[in-house]
Design a protein around this nucleic acid. Sequence first.
DNA 1: TATGAATGAGCATTCATTCAT
DNA 2: CATGAATGAATGCTCATTCAT
Lengths: 218, 218, 218, 218
Amino acid sequence: MGAVRTGRMPRAVRERQMLDAAVQIFGRRGYTAASMDEIAELAGVSKPLVYLYLNSKEDLFTACIRREAAALTEAVRDGVRPGLPADRQLYEGLRAFFTHTARHPEGWTVLHVQARTQGEPFAAEIAVMRTDIVAFVTELILVDAREAHQDPALPEREVAGLAEALVGAAESLASWANATPGVTPRQAAATLMNFAWAGLGDLMENRPWSPPTEPARR
Amino acid sequence: MGAVRTGRMPRAVRERQMLDAAVQIFGRRGYTAASMDEIAELAGVSKPLVYLYLNSKEDLFTACIRREAAALTEAVRDGVRPGLPADRQLYEGLRAFFTHTARHPEGWTVLHVQARTQGEPFAAEIAVMRTDIVAFVTELILVDAREAHQDPALPEREVAGLAEALVGAAESLASWANATPGVTPRQAAATLMNFAWAGLGDLMENRPWSPPTEPARR
Amino acid sequence: MGAVRTGRMPRAVRERQMLDAAVQIFGRRGYTAASMDEIAELAGVSKPLVYLYLNSKEDLFTACIRREAAALTEAVRDGVRPGLPADRQLYEGLRAFFTHTARHPEGWTVLHVQARTQGEPFAAEIAVMRTDIVAFVTELILVDAREAHQDPALPEREVAGLAEALVGAAESLASWANATPGVTPRQAAATLMNFAWAGLGDLMENRPWSPPTEPARR
Amino acid sequence: MGAVRTGRMPRAVRERQMLDAAVQIFGRRGYTAASMDEIAELAGVSKPLVYLYLNSKEDLFTACIRREAAALTEAVRDGVRPGLPADRQLYEGLRAFFTHTARHPEGWTVLHVQARTQGEPFAAEIAVMRTDIVAFVTELILVDAREAHQDPALPEREVAGLAEALVGAAESLASWANATPGVTPRQAAATLMNFAWAGLGDLMENRPWSPPTEPARR
DNA sequence: TATGAATGAGCATTCATTCAT
DNA sequence: CATGAATGAATGCTCATTCAT
């Protein structure tokens, strides 16, 4: 975003430049394949400065993850309007999610692809964010169950699996939307709502799809 | 699986040992972090032999991807019974998919996580497999639309998005199931069917979830 | 010794703080492994100030060597009482030597261990100090030879070797005493006198230990 | 010793070449200042080969220390003739010691100067060798006390200090002899015997030099 | 007087890859 | 068919040193 200014400047600014560059490179190459040299060059600074400010490759990567995770989480929280019904809340959250991932594709790649690939300690950072989001979705599902469906007492694991699958689908869709020209965040959110919400409704009203014995659906 | 035999033996066997080892190591460490030394050692051969048979690290990784992709695709195709209704076919395909990924977790990791992380030329290999599967799912959706819903003429992009999301959810669920003890392939497939199929049905019967104007659902 | 004051203060004081810190660090880590960063931090000043006052790592180390060598030499000279007989003078000198090295172990390490390890130009600095001390000891031996033994005309090289060995033994003992709890400077000096002086006396009275032809001693 | 052969050759030979080079460089520069590049170049091999065979700089240095310590110890043991009286044994041991250190000055520097400068784990390696030698000397002193002086029951610490000082003097003399042209190992050994043995004799026959109260010696 | 900002150069270590046998 | 021997090229990281203020 804009050419990197050169010359002397305050630490905070330089640090931001470095994190910006690191997110680009880590997103493009992956943790292991990314080189501190390339990051420093893209940031427009020398390598020692990167180490002076960010300590190590590991710390730098962690800093990237945290910054991007915080930004994404904040974007989603900001997108949700608390007063609305649960389904609208979910939709708005999804829209904010897809909007943010579309605007920050490299950041999203760092979170969704690169960080999860590298075992500990990075996976743990992601797990925190993901747990947050899954909990948020789970809560929405339960609220909806209470509001709109007389609380059908869905089994714990079932709901966890559903939320997990929904989040997985959203994550997958985000990457797909980034890779597919012409897909707007609005469309992605609507698609996912269509795809998921109705199924949830059916499930909650005890019209589940039954697997082996019955011949077909409905 | 099974101790690696040493000493002279036919090329095909040796090659299989090498690919087995490579899949393990690539799955565990990622492409860049995996070392040819470790692979050769696990395969029980010397490094030059690996190069003699498989040319380079890149070729070796590509070979892994192709083998695992072919195995997975074949497993899914074998799992589907052509005569059944579309939803049953999809269910059986999912079950075969989850069964295979559960039985070959490192292979699945190579495909789902490691290969996609490394950009070209590996992403292309994955894209091929994914395209196959998405096409297969798309076809099932369309068949179902014709069979069970008088062909509601779903827009092309919509269906593509749905299939994409379904496959993404399946992929996500596969990794989640591998990481979560006690989840059987059967359960995973049923969960996903519950989650997705009903929503598809609603959509096809023109009861889509409507995003912005209406206050809530149904 | 004493907390480092911060803020503005006269150059001489700052310089002393830096040299103090440098002696600590050089003594602890050795010349090459010591870092200017650590020295500046221990001195409580910024690195550029160290360079402003002391020019370079090499100059800083040289300054340390000179200061410590001067302090040690002065301590020994101050310990010797000129009027006494030669053996008493040597004893007092040794006692002052061991006292000083016990009180300034890092300074002694810098001189005895670190400076000699680093070849030119530091070894030369040490050589100066050592030459001084060896000359001093040589003089005492010769004076004693004249006073107490009718000048037995010891060969030049022999005396040089003896003084060298005596100084070497003293140096070795100093480090040993520093590393061995419970050894006082007084004990160290007495031990060395017992060990060395009698042998010198025998030698000067022409009762040398004869190496090859005779089967045994005396 | 002799130009390093190039091209392919068995591991044992290469390893010896590398150790030879490493001893030279470590002796000349010290552990920290020595660079693996320089060692590899002097050994006539590439750096990776050094790492392949010797693992790390630390391991390489340790290997040098062990090899040189073993060689020195063996040389001294081979030089001593067990049947002779204690003083002759000590003389022969010293002569072998000075001969070896004169023939392998860099090895001696590594042991005496460089290894001791670098704290653990290298100091421990040296401590082992030194303990051996000090014990050897202590034993000779005690044997002599019994054989030639009716066992005057020297106090434990006194003897330890004496042996320590003798070994220290020998070590110091060895470095001095290496740095002083024209000094033969024979002369160095004789000098040290003259210097030390007579003093020991006086001490054991209760003619110690008495430090403070008496005016002078004898 | 004093320092925050910045870097060129070097170092230990590793890795994919190739010969000679 | 198979490997022990060997390396060019990076890579993460550190350090002595210098400006601009």
